Computed example of a mutant assay.
Amino acid sequence: MRDNRVLRGRHLHRLQRRHFILFDVLPFVGTLAALALLAVRPIGGMEIGLFAAMWLVTGLGLTVGYHRLFTHGAFTTTGWVSNLLIVMGSMAGRGPMISWAAMHRRHHELSDHDGDLHSPNLHGAGWRRRLHGFVHAQLTWMVEHDYPNVAHYVPDLIARRSWVNVNGYYYAWVLLGLAIPAVLGGLISASVWGVLTGFLWGGVVRMFVVEQTMSAINSLNHMLGSRPFQTRGDNSRNLGVMAWLAWGEGWHNNHHAFPYSAAFGLRWSEFDLGFLFIRALEAAGLAWNVKVPAPERITARMTAHPAEAAPDFGHG
């Protein structure tokens, strides 16, 4: 029986392969080129600063915008902030916001079960099959996959005309994310070399690192780490190191237990850069209705039987 929740077709698969080549393969090649150029001239504070700034901007666009706001409705913000978050997330080159949100909602619906687009746990036992699952979740699932029907998964998002309009300029925003560090590199250094290294380190290398970091949440965080919460049939796990590297995303078991929560780190010791940014928006009057589970609910989920702990996906 046909599953109307997903779309398949040669045209979609061609688009997926093209996106994979443009924003996964080419950034990898560009990263190798940037590393090779280190033999010609080492990088300095400018390149490191541009990399860090663009890593922060695009990473927050993904975790705060794409993930917590649009996919799960974890807080409310103004129109211009939400549009800016689409631009910031788009510059990461991880796909248009509406598509990303649809795929992530399907991931929560079917996490580590048949139909999950990027589970590492559906390829059998043994180290070879486990390695195959890791590579699939980290990278190769993006080459060709079922496309979630946005009319089914994200009707709330496609009903917002301004979001659809900004989302429609996805490729322009990706190019902007490459152009900004190139222009800044040229202006700061007053040289063509600065344009090149700004483009490479603030643009290409940053895109590659952000992509690999976000993909590691799909792979590593469904294979390794702690499970303080029982979740509905998935293998989501917490990895503190990934929380630091991925803007708070590494508290993945926490997130699967409370998908609606704006905070992925649920304890004072769980560093969550994305949530700190949301709190800063709230303090500035730019975010409200910030959803965080009550302490007693967190405690109850820790002791609940899995069958009694089905998550609220929180994307109404």
Rank of each mutant, 00 (worst) to 15 (best):
His152Lys: 04
His13Phe: 10
His132Met: 07
Pro295Leu: 09
Thr140Asp: 03
Tyr260Asp: 06
Gly30Cys: 11
Val143Gln: 09
Phe199Glu: 12
Asn149Ala: 06
Ser189Cys: 11
Gly126Trp: 04
Asp146Gly: 02
Arg129Ser: 07
Arg297Asp: 15
Leu157Lys: 06
Lys291Gln: 15
Ala33Gln: 03
Ile217Pro: 07
Val25Glu: 06
Ser269His: 13
Gly126Thr: 02
Val25Pro: 00
Leu69Cys: 05
Gly233Val: 00
Ser261Cys: 02
Gln138Tyr: 00
Asn253Trp: 02
His256Asp: 01
Asn83Asp: 14
Gly115Thr: 00
Leu220Ala: 13
Gln138Lys: 01
Phe28Asp: 02
Met1Asn: 09
Pro306Gln: 00
Arg267Thr: 14
Leu286Met: 14
Asp156Tyr: 09
Leu35Glu: 04
Gly126Arg: 01
Gly285Pro: 12
Phe28Thr: 13
Thr303Glu: 09
His113Cys: 01
Thr63Asn: 13
Ala39Asn: 07
Asn83Gln: 14
Ala263Met: 11
Val192Ala: 15
Met88Arg: 08
Tyr147Phe: 10
Tyr260Thr: 04
Met54Trp: 13
Val174Met: 08
Arg8Ile: 10
His132Gln: 13
Asp234Glu: 01
Arg105Lys: 04
Asn254Arg: 05
Ala182Ser: 10
Leu84Phe: 15
Gly250Val: 05
Gly233Cys: 00
Val154Pro: 00
Leu69Pro: 07
Pro27Tyr: 01
Trp244Tyr: 15
Gly285Gln: 10
Ala243Val: 05
Thr231Leu: 03
Gly59Lys: 12
Asn149Lys: 02
His123Arg: 08
Leu122Met: 01
Gly61Asn: 10
Thr197Arg: 13
Arg267Pro: 06
Leu281Ala: 13
Ala179Ser: 12
Ser162Phe: 08
Pro228Gln: 04
Ala309Lys: 00
Trp251Ala: 06
Tyr171Lys: 10
